[in-house]
Design a protein around this nucleic acid. Structure first.
Length: 702
DNA sequence: CTATGGATTCTTTTT
DNA sequence: GAATCCATAG
């Protein structure tokens, strides 16, 4: 018990040890919020609350994984539910789905599946004037209960028709999209009293992280789930609300006391993460949001070094500046995983990657081209889906002609048409010889496909690793990809991921694996042990912290993003996003922007972000870059970054005396090449032994 | 039916 | 610049 209350302040203690009834923890960035939640769970367990009646919900997989790990460090957490809202819904619906009309092995459709389906419907109905993106947006808005009443008109009517058809098609395939998961959970909780009672027991103590990001559907889930006991502990920070576009309403957190009368409210505003310099920047910027309760984060941490603003020429130059800054940190002896680089949109990562690669700086991207969304991975998984859920037409049509077996558009169209006419899934037709009679030459190939799918369907579903291995084998997918080693490697990685899942969740089986990866974008924590710089969007950075942070692309129309500029409220959300970025940093923070950027491939002048103007000059150390200031980097004729390291990095021999800007003088103990970089180990006279990246260390002899 | 190249369109952020 | 769509040749 003592461990649970070690190193906590009065407010944190109050939250951790709060008894029954609703509790709201308004927790500023870096104020120990996760610590409070995890210890509160441990505290409850210590009081004798059964772990099986504690349930902690988060928004991202990353957050739930971290929370689970940290709880496990305190108490045995096997029976505890720690998962995302969507994960929770999927798990529940897998068990109770048939009570609201879904078969057990329903399919979860991702964004790509949704886009495909919508596109097809638009084509079918000849609604050429509607764009997929527009309909998709309307769909989510509607499902999240935010569609404004709006003027009913010809266009809106058509959108509604598409949405209705979309929903029917999903239903017919025994499939749900992400939004349906939550909606169906609401339906289950509302309509099925027994299920509700059982789930309420499961959520005897309900904890929700990032409460400011809940939307109205999630809010409904929470109120239904926490039942009359109302043992709901919500934590959040209005200043970090960044999912308005997904329907999140700050109202939920602002109205907590009204929604849950008698709630206790604890405010944590002491920051334990960042230096004073960094917090000053964060406070200065967020102050510009209106309609916000005045609150500054305070800290007893050191002043620290000033936040750096780096003015660059263009995107390549910005990437070079980022690499050079990272290089300096590495050279100063920081491990690479101390460092994170943030950007506003995923597309920005490409340039940075290129430069980091040529600079030999190891990096890892969190959530970019998501592993489970890659073509080859989705193809193989579609075989599994089609075999496990015979109604899954999206999956079936995806693999119909992959690898190519002479079944083209025509055949696909006929199959679908025929299926619709008979009211069965296209795949079911394969079993029916007479149905195929009119299909001419394709019949033979279809027969073979039917046999293949039957064989897959007959495989034991217990071990997903073996299952996928066999699927890759039976489909001939490997030889199909024979001359594409990168994709082939992805296939192997998928099989590995399945095998790993089998070890982690022995009872999950291939269906559990399907479900998990539908809700996971990349192979998280895949090489967590590796010493690498982390690249990610600012959205994915929420909840994390790093000693050294670089925020790139601080230009108008990027950050804040162009699409947010029309609405003041959306600009405020961008500002909160920037606030999130800044408050991730513990010790060092650099803010980068460029005078020019590529827009649809055309160089376009760009202004520094308004957020930079909101920071008082005195808080920033400005680094101005120009052609002659490049630290070994140069913009080549192609506009590509060519990162060269000085005059060819000088070589040193073991035993030689060297000098370093920061660490002073010392003796070379070892030189080794690792992962494309030359690492040099030096015994410094005063700083002790350090391993540095030679190319960035800027060592001199003597 | 497939492969190809040229035209077109596109851009937030996540589950 | 890149991904996706579409028309045309093989």
């Amino acid at each position: 018990m003592e461990a649970i209350l070690r190193d906590v302040n009065d407010e944190q203690r109050a939250a951790i040890t709060h008894g029954e009834g609703p509790l709201l923890v308004v927790a500023g960035a870096g104020s120990g919020k996760t610590r409070v939640i995890t210890r509160r769970i441990a505290w409850l367990a210590g009081l004798g609350v059964a772990p099986a009646s504690i349930c902690a919900l988060t928004f991202t997989n990353k957050a739930s994984r971290e929370m689970r790990e940290r709880v496990e460090a305190l108490v045995p957490a096997r029976d505890l539910w720690v998962c995302t809202f969507h994960g929770f819904a999927a798990r529940v619906l897998r068990r109770f789905g048939e009570r609201i009309g879904y078969a057990g092995e329903f399919t979860i459709c991702d964004t790509e599946d949704r886009t495909r389906l919508l596109k097809e419907i638009l084509k079918e109905l000849h609604f050429d004037e509607l764009r997929v993106g527009e309909v998709a947006a309307a769909l989510t808005r509607t499902k999240n209960g935010l569609e404004r009443p709006g003027a009913p008109g010809y266009r809106a009517e058509r959108v509604t028709r598409v949405m209705t058809l979309y929903q029917e098609r999903l239903r017919a395939q025994n499939a749900m999209d992400f939004d349906d998961l939550l909606l169906n959970l609401v339906r289950l909780l509302q309509e099925d009293e027994e299920a509700r009672r059982r789930l309420q027991a499961r959520a005897g103590h309900l904890l929700v992280d990032e409460y400011q990001d809940t939307n109205s559907v999630q809010y409904t889930i929470l109120t239904l789930l926490c039942g009359p006991e109302r043992n709901l502990c919500a934590t959040g920070d209005p200043d970090q609300s960044i999912y308005r576009w997904r329907g999140a309403t700050i109202r939920n957190i602002l109205d907590f006391e009204r929604d849950f009368p008698g709630a206790r409210v604890v405010t944590l505003d002491r920051n334990y993460r960042s230096t004073k310099s960094i917090l000053a920047v964060a406070n200065a910027v967020i102050r510009h949001n209106r309609g916000r309760r005045e609150k500054d984060l305070r800290t007893d941490n050191a002043e620290g070094i000033r936040v750096r603003e780096i003015r660059c020429l263009d995107e390549s130059d910005e990437a070079i500046a980022a690499a050079a800054t990272v290089g300096r940190w590495l050279a100063a002896g920081r491990p690479a995983n101390d460092v994170a680089i943030f950007y506003r949109v995923n597309a920005q990562s490409r340039t940075i990657e290129r430069v980091l690669t040529s600079a030999g700086i190891p990096y890892r991207i969190v959530g970019a081209v998501e592993f489970f969304r890659r073509k080859e991975v989705k193809d193989l998984l579609s075989y599994v889906r089609a075999a496990r859920n015979p109604s899954d037409e999206i999956a079936f049509r995806r693999i119909l002609n992959v690898p190519p077996r002479g079944l083209g558009e025509r055949t696909e169209g006929r199959l679908v048409e025929l299926g619709r006419a008979r009211g069965v899934a296209a795949r079911a037709l394969l079993a029916d010889r007479s149905a195929l009679a009119g299909l001419g030459r394709a019949r033979r190939a279809l027969g073979e496909l039917a046999e293949l799918l039957d064989r897959i369907a007959a495989l034991p579903p217990g071990d997903p690793g073996v299952f996928l291995e066999t699927v890759a084998d039976l489909t001939g997918y490997r030889s199909f990809l024979a001359d594409d080693p990168e994709r082939l490697a992805n296939v192997e990685e998928l099989i590995n991921a399945a095998a790993e899942y089998a070890l982690r969740e022995p009872s999950g089986g291939v269906d559990g694996f399907l479900q998990e990866n539908a809700l996971t974008s990349d192979v998280d924590g895949y090489d967590a042990a590796a010493e690498t710089v982390t690249l990610m969007t600012t959205h994915s950075a929420k909840g994390l912290e790093f000693p050294c942070v670089l925020v790139t692309g601080l230009m108008e129309e990027i950050f804040p993003h162009a699409l947010s500029l029309a609405e003041p409220e959306e600009v405020e959300e961008e500002r909160r996003l920037f606030y999130v970025a800044v408050t991730r940093a513990r010790e060092e923070l650099a803010l980068l922007h460029a005078a020019s950027r590529l827009r649809f491939g055309v160089p376009t002048p760009s202004l520094p972000s308004r957020f930079l103007d909101e920071i008082p000059d005195a808080l920033l150390e400005v680094e101005e870059r120009g052609r002659d200031l490049f630290l070994g980097g140069e913009v080549g004729e192609t506009g590509e970054a060519e990162f060269q390291v000085g005059e060819g990095a000088p070589s040193f021999t073991v035993g030689e005396r060297v000098r370093h800007d920061h660490f002073g003088s010392g003796r070379v103990a070892a030189v080794a090449s690792r992962g494309g970089t030359v690492r040099i180990t030096i015994d410094f006279d005063r700083a002790g032994r350090r391993e540095l990246a030679l190319e960035f260390a800027r060592l001199t002899r003597g």
